[in-house]
């Protein structure tokens, strides 16, 4: 495995900046993910009208929107490598670990940007309570990390498949279902004006999930990448 003298972090950042430059030039993934999120949000919002939503329904809707938006764009980065045939060059210039981390940071940036736009819109459209913002942000950050940590390797897998289609959502959903359940449960409590301490079991789970999924991905990624 070719390794430059630089540390793992700087090698990963090199991959990350390469992807960011490419993305800023075309904005293909960001546009897809953003428009998907806005569209879903609009559909949800106008079909519900001015009805008063319960905390349970609000948190469920929020994470449904987040899930499908994530599914629409997070596979782009690997698919692009395969389609333009640059994966071979990348294989020669960087090692698997730094590629994985670079892509992970990239997807994290992508989803964070989307979240920054979708979340305020969600609060405006659904009139969700804003007096409990800090705990919500904690859960939101953990949710973004969770979504990205579990789906980045799945994106790498489907980029290698010959028929991609809906495969990304199909493969990701069973893995994400536990995550989504605890995210919905945690944000339901928060919309219901409970404190962060009341959601401690969910928060602990979310942290454990992110750590386990990231570690497993790093261990397994080289087997996908070498194919």
């Amino acid at each position: 495995m070719p390794k430059s003298s630089a540390g793992l972090l700087s090698r990963s950042l090199a991959v990350y900046f390469k992807d960011m430059r490419l993305e800023l030039r075309t904005r293909s993934a960001l546009n897809a993910i953003l428009m998907f999120g806005v569209t879903t949000l609009a559909v949800v919002s106008f079909s519900l009208g001015q009805s008063n939503l319960s905390p349970k329904i609000m948190s469920a809707l929020f994470w449904v929107i987040m899930f499908f938006s994530a599914m629409s764009g997070l596979a782009q980065t690997f698919i692009r490598e395969e389609e333009t045939g640059t994966s071979l060059a990348l294989k020669l210039t960087a090692d698997a670990d730094s590629i994985y981390l670079g892509k992970l940071f990239f997807n994290l940036t992508l989803l964070t940007m989307m979240t920054l736009i979708i979340t305020p819109m969600f609060f405006i459209f659904t009139d969700a309570p804003t007096n409990n913002l800090f705990p919500f942000l904690v859960v939101l950050v953990l949710g973004v990390f969770g979504l990205v940590s579990a789906t980045t390797i799945v994106a790498a897998i489907i980029a290698k498949a010959s028929t991609k289609g809906a495969l990304f959502a199909v493969l990701s959903f069973p893995i994400l279902m536990v995550l989504l359940m605890s995210l919905v449960s945690a944000s339901e409590k928060i919309f219901d004006n409970q404190t962060l301490a009341d959601t401690s079991s969910e928060v602990q789970f979310l942290i454990a999930y992110v750590v386990v999924m990231t570690t497993a991905s790093i261990l397994l990624f080289k087997f996908v990448w070498r194919e």
Binding site: V154, I157, K160, L220, F223, E227
Partner: peptide, 20 residues
């Protein structure tokens, strides 16, 4: 290879299913 990686990765979530 791809299906092996997926099945290992998916199996890791099973303990979460049982406890969470």
């Amino acid at each position: 290879s791809l299906s092996a990686v997926y099945s290992i990765f998916a199996f890791i979530t099973v303990p979460f299913l049982i406890f969470i």
